[in-house]
Computed example of a mutant assay.
Amino acid sequence: MGAVPDEEAKSPAGSDTEIESLAEFDAAATHATLAGFRVQSVDLTTRTPVLLRTDTAGAVFLGCAMEPDAAAKVRADGALVFPPVPHLPFDPYRGTLYSPAELFEGLAAGYERTPDALSYAWFQRTKADGDIFSSMLRSIHDDAISDALDELLVGARVVGVMGGHAMGRGTAEYEGAAVLGRTLARAGFTVATGGGPGAMEAANLGAYAAPFDDAMLGSALEILAEEPSFRPSVSAWARAAFEVRTKWPRGGTSVGIPTWFYGHEPPNAFAGSIAKYFANATREDGLLARSNAGVVFLPGAAGTVQEIFDNATPNYYESRGGPTPMVLVDRAHWTERLPTWPLLEALAEDRPMAGRIALVDSVSEAPGALARMSR
């Protein structure tokens, strides 16, 4: 069954120098020097004695809480110290991706009280006033998220599943997307989506359901159908998802990559790891670039059309090491309602990408199309 690698996994570039937990800090500090290390968003207020006796010259501390005497000492050593920023609803220096529980903390009091909603509200305020400090914090946050996402996906075979947020729970289309996510996860792929509602949630739900028997998904779909949309109430919509997670804990994992740029779309609670960005362009490119085993495009509107051609461009130019499979689902949708397929086919003519694009009638055909194009 497909699974995201352990969240403590490191990329080769950062494996020897990045410290993102107290356990990693304690292990590194046994060598009596932290020179050259990058300590990222670790609360070090209980490690004052260690910091006072350890060489920290050349170290960088990003958002690490420290007692004043410890902070003064490491600065005197020549370390760079970027202190925590107070009164933010998010941590710009975080070393790991978000979990659903973290973003939806406080949901019982209403979605508007959660870190996810508060971060969107902060974004709305600060992007309007043009404050350079806030802009810098957003950039630091998004870079930290990209770093954590790369570390998480080392060695993973990632299939992206794209589709519209309007796909309602309780529909045949939603069930089909969920079955797709389950099929891909059981085949050993890591499912990655835009992390929002609709088709994205369905695919993440399917991956979550992968370890259970087939009946579990049907039961979960019935629970979710009671709250078919995040409109008018995100709170009720999200609570239904957490009801499923509570009834069937320890489900399969997948990745959601949403954005606060589209803050009216909440993240879904079925992606085990959530890479949420402020900059939508960074999010879009990052999602598609990391889908190294192909992308399935379910019916959608403007956003999904944009993603098709965002992915077609590097495939056309072979700029990511060669074309990766692209599967468009629903012939009528992509040839009549939004005739994207004819243009994609024209672009691919006489190029290697021609063998890496497919149009299928139903979502059940997508895994087979991916497999054929991956040979």
Rank of each mutant, 00 (worst) to 15 (best):
H333S: 10
E7K: 07
S135Q: 03
N292S: 04
G163E: 04
T193D: 09
R351D: 01
M353A: 10
T54M: 07
P86A: 13
R331G: 13
R53C: 14
Q124S: 01
F25I: 07
A289P: 04
G194H: 04
A302F: 06
A187D: 14
R320E: 14
T46E: 14
E105Q: 11
N292F: 05
H165Q: 10
I223Y: 00
G78S: 04
D26H: 08
A241Q: 15
T253I: 14
S11C: 11
A269H: 06
I145R: 03
T48C: 04
T313V: 15
A156H: 09
R231M: 10
R231L: 13
A240S: 14
D77F: 07
A275P: 12
N204I: 15
S235I: 03
A199W: 02
H165I: 15
W341E: 02
E365P: 03
T253Q: 14
W237M: 15
G181Y: 03
S229Q: 07
A269R: 11
Y120K: 00
A32W: 11
G95K: 00
H165D: 11
V60E: 15
S254C: 15
I223G: 03
I257H: 02
R337T: 15
D43T: 10
A109S: 08
P352A: 13
G355H: 11
A72T: 12
P211Y: 08
F242T: 15
M200Y: 00
E24S: 04
F270I: 14
M200V: 08
T114C: 04
R125L: 06
W334V: 09
M1E: 12
D310R: 01
S362H: 13
E336H: 12
R125C: 00
E284F: 00
A220P: 01
G256Y: 05
F37T: 13
E24V: 04
V363W: 01
G252Y: 07
G251E: 06
R182T: 10
P314G: 10
P68V: 13
K10L: 11
A172K: 09
